[in-house]
């Protein structure tokens, strides 16, 4: 009891010097301000949803378009003078987007996972400290630079290899070239999230496997990767989601031809590159084109949002397993 009252007395004495009254006021004001900053992020999400969907709803409310044909139609010709629902089918844009996302995933997932296993299981600390920052440079290079690289280097290379030597037609704007640079761009993201997950796997599991006579390969692929699997899957999903939302490289390299093609050497248009195309055309805010980018943007947002939520649950599950 004595201890407590002593402590209290000292506390009172000290808080006298810190002018209690002013502090209490400051404390309350700051608490409100900081809380405001904390919840501001929620306002951003609400703002995104309201701004995208209010315009998208205005778009769908027009007699010239139709929600059903928007999602099922296979013709995207919004700039045509013939404004009919049949010209507002978003599937070619989704097709183009997914094509590039899948092809760039096919590049980034194996290379990113391989890099992650190397960095987490094989590389010495010294090598890791050199390679990791170098890989992160790849993630820090602006996407417009990747677009330039695709157009000025990858596409001519594809033309030389495929067109001149093998006689396969390569469009100047093509999905493959864009996919290659987008794939390279997301390697560091896939690698770093996967590596974090693998490094969170306890050492004791690796030792347990080594003690059974497992080789490094077996420990990496049969123990560490399965144990980190939900984190690795989250990395894959986030990588693909990033590829879906990638804008500049695909606008520059993949062209602006919305079409239902499966040929990676054709020009395609993605959701993002359509939005850029219209924004450059300076469509007036109330026009059908000005509104159509919000319908496409809302679709894009919904796709990436769902993927992000899924990857968050994978990451959460992973954290719970090893914390």
């Amino acid at each position: 009891m004595n201890m407590v009252s002593n402590k209290k007395r000292i506390k009172n004495l000290l808080s006298f010097f810190h002018s209690t009254g002013m502090n209490d006021f400051n404390e309350k004001v700051m608490k409100v301000l900081l809380f405001g900053c904390g919840v501001f992020s929620i306002l951003i999400t609400v703002g995104i949803i309201i701004s995208l969907f209010s315009e998208a709803i205005a778009f769908f409310a027009r007699p010239e378009v139709n929600l059903f044909t928007f999602f099922t139609g296979t013709t995207w010709r919004p700039l045509s003078s013939n404004i009919v629902p049949e010209n507002f089918g978003v599937r070619p844009l989704i097709r183009g987007t997914l094509m590039i996302a899948i092809m760039s995933g096919a590049i980034a997932i194996p290379l990113g996972l391989g890099s992650a296993i190397y960095l987490s299981e094989y590389a010495s600390d010294r090598v890791r400290n050199i390679i990791k920052p170098l890989l992160e440079i790849l993630a820090g290079i602006p996407t417009v630079v990747y677009g330039y690289f695709a157009l000025s280097f990858i596409t001519p290379l594809l033309k030389t290899v495929l067109e001149e030597n093998l006689g396969i037609d390569v469009n100047f704007f093509n999905a493959l070239s864009a996919s290659i640079v987008v794939g390279v761009m997301i390697i560091p993201m896939v690698a770093s999230i996967s590596e974090d997950a693998m490094r969170a796997v306890p050492r004791s599991l690796r030792e347990g496997a080594y003690a059974l006579g497992a080789t490094k390969f077996e420990v990496s692929t049969k123990i560490v990767v399965p144990a980190a699997l939900s984190g690795i899957i989250a990395a894959f999903i986030l990588g693909i989601s990033r590829a879906i939302g990638e804008t500049m490289a695909v606008s520059i390299a993949a062209g602006s031809t919305p079409r239902m093609t499966m040929n990676p050497l054709d020009s395609v248009q993605t959701m993002t590159s359509f939005i850029v195309q219209v924004s450059f055309g300076d469509a007036p805010s109330g026009s059908i084109n000005g509104q159509s980018i919000f319908a496409v943007g809302a679709t894009l947002f919904a796709m990436t949002f769902i993927m992000n939520i899924i990857s968050q649950t994978f990451i959460k599950r992973f954290r719970e397993a090893y914390d």
Binding site: S51, L52, I244, G245, I275
Partner: peptide, 25 residues
């Protein structure tokens, strides 16, 4: 938890969507 989830999600929203938010707001 909700704020945390929201911030992590915002970090994954494509930059072009922020452009559309900025345009409207």
């Amino acid at each position: 938890d909700f704020i945390n989830l929201n911030i992590n999600n915002l970090a994954g929203v494509p930059s072009i969507v922020y452009g559309m938010l900025g345009l409207v707001v």
